[in-house]
Simulated assay, not measured.
Amino acid sequence: MSLVVGCGGDAPHGTVNRVIDTAQPTGADDRPPPPLPLPRGGTGARRGPLAPPRPGAAGGRLRRRLLAALVAAALAVPVAGAARPEAVPAPVPPPLPPLRAVTAASLAERFAATRGAIEAAMRTARAAGHPWRAAMLRTMADPARHFLSFDGRDGGRAAEVFGDLATADRIAVVVPGSGTGLDTYGLLRAGSMRLQRATGGRGAVVAWLGYRTPSTVSLQALTPGRADEAVPALRAFVRDLARLKPAARISLLCHSYGGVLCGRAAPGLNVADIVLYGSPGAGVDDVAAMGTRAAVWAARGTGDWVADLPHAAVRLPFATVGLGEDPMDPRFGARIFAAGDGGHSDYLKDGSPALANIARIVSGHAPAEVSHVS
């Protein structure tokens, strides 16, 4: 099995912000969704992630509020969709041979192959009249950058390495949340670079944009559907890393909706830590339901609007609405660490308590824990 980022459907996603790898770009995750009549905190007694609330006034209120969120998102979808441009065309990337070993020579060969795929996408974007995407892809094709995989279609897929993967004994895989694509990739890249520096440069960080993320204000952002679609790709990627680097300590770092993907993909993964930060849920009821031997951590900044989202899951005839229990709720069972007073996109900013603590977790050290819900 190769370290390849899987591709989704044909529809575009995300809002185009025309960001070209700035230090702190503005992505869809930076803005809170429109105000909704949503509850805070946990849901009460533990239940499976798909079970409806138990009968009673509290359960009825929660169900009505979740349905109100669904209706509000449904009304917002046409507006958000109207603002999105047509999908930027990109060629089908050539198949990549599987990595048999992680050595300087094998990685150089892989990076050269993905650079060729990026350059092909750049030429296609330019020919189709999308100079801003072509310019962004030109920066990604810089020989100093290292991509394990790339696919420019459907908003984009990529896995970029920061640090020396061949010699690293600590590897962090950063899984982004809603609204992330090639047009908002700068935020993911900048945070991954800062994390790699915060570890003292001894480990490697992989920015894994390997799935079709939902738009921040959309029906998909309220359901685990996009996460479930991406589970096989994330599991394959992490298992390949564990096979190729059996002595390395691997941590899965999951921001925002990425926490739902990590929670659903967790069973059986050979990772040391799963870190949920700024996550509205993990798509499961609690840590035990994740089926993992990894240490599960959670953090949320006091300025993060995700705290105001619903923390439950309700099975409806046409979909499951909600993303499960709040990872910050004591009943969820995660180890809580300090994240400071930052907002939703501030966790990997220089000087933030969240960045310092996540770097410590990746390095195998205990973070500064807190005993209360942030």
Rank of each mutant, 00 (worst) to 15 (best):
1 M>D: 11
5 V>G: 06
7 C>H: 15
8 G>K: 07
9 G>M: 07
15 T>F: 07
18 R>D: 14
19 V>Y: 08
20 I>F: 10
21 D>T: 14
26 T>W: 12
26 T>E: 14
29 D>Q: 13
35 P>T: 00
35 P>L: 01
36 L>R: 04
39 P>N: 11
39 P>T: 12
45 A>L: 12
46 R>D: 10
49 P>K: 03
49 P>Q: 04
49 P>E: 03
51 A>N: 02
52 P>Q: 06
53 P>Q: 10
63 R>Q: 10
67 L>H: 09
67 L>A: 12
81 G>Q: 08
82 A>V: 06
86 E>P: 09
87 A>C: 10
91 P>Q: 10
94 P>I: 12
104 A>T: 13
105 A>T: 13
106 S>D: 14
108 A>T: 12
109 E>R: 14
114 T>Y: 02
116 G>R: 11
118 I>R: 01
121 A>L: 11
121 A>V: 09
125 A>Y: 06
128 A>H: 04
133 R>Y: 05
133 R>P: 00
138 R>K: 14
139 T>F: 09
140 M>I: 03
141 A>F: 05
144 A>L: 12
147 F>Q: 00
147 F>I: 01
157 R>I: 02
159 A>H: 04
160 E>G: 01
169 D>T: 15
171 I>L: 02
175 V>G: 00
175 V>P: 00
176 P>C: 03
180 T>Q: 04
182 L>E: 02
183 D>R: 07
188 L>E: 03
191 G>Y: 03
191 G>M: 07
191 G>S: 12
192 S>N: 01
194 R>L: 09
196 Q>N: 07
199 T>C: 10
200 G>S: 02
200 G>C: 04
201 G>A: 03
204 A>D: 05
205 V>I: 11
208 W>Y: 12
209 L>S: 01
210 G>E: 01
210 G>N: 08
211 Y>D: 07
217 V>L: 12
228 D>V: 14
228 D>S: 15
231 V>A: 09
233 A>K: 05
234 L>P: 03
238 V>K: 00
242 A>E: 12
246 P>K: 08
250 I>V: 13
252 L>H: 00
253 L>I: 13
256 S>P: 13
260 V>R: 04
262 C>E: 03
263 G>W: 00
264 R>S: 10
267 P>K: 11
268 G>S: 07
268 G>K: 06
269 L>M: 13
273 D>E: 13
275 V>Y: 05
282 A>I: 01
286 D>W: 00
286 D>H: 09
290 M>Q: 07
290 M>N: 05
292 T>D: 13
294 A>Q: 09
295 A>K: 14
295 A>T: 15
297 W>E: 02
298 A>Y: 02
299 A>V: 13
299 A>M: 08
303 G>C: 10
305 W>C: 06
312 A>Y: 05
324 G>L: 01
325 E>T: 12
326 D>E: 11
329 D>T: 08
333 G>Y: 07
334 A>N: 01
334 A>R: 00
335 R>S: 11
341 D>R: 15
342 G>H: 11
343 G>Q: 10
344 H>W: 09
344 H>K: 13
349 K>M: 15
352 S>C: 14
360 R>G: 12
362 V>A: 05
362 V>E: 00
363 S>G: 11
365 H>A: 15
370 V>T: 14
370 V>W: 08
371 S>C: 14
372 H>Y: 15
372 H>S: 15
373 V>K: 11
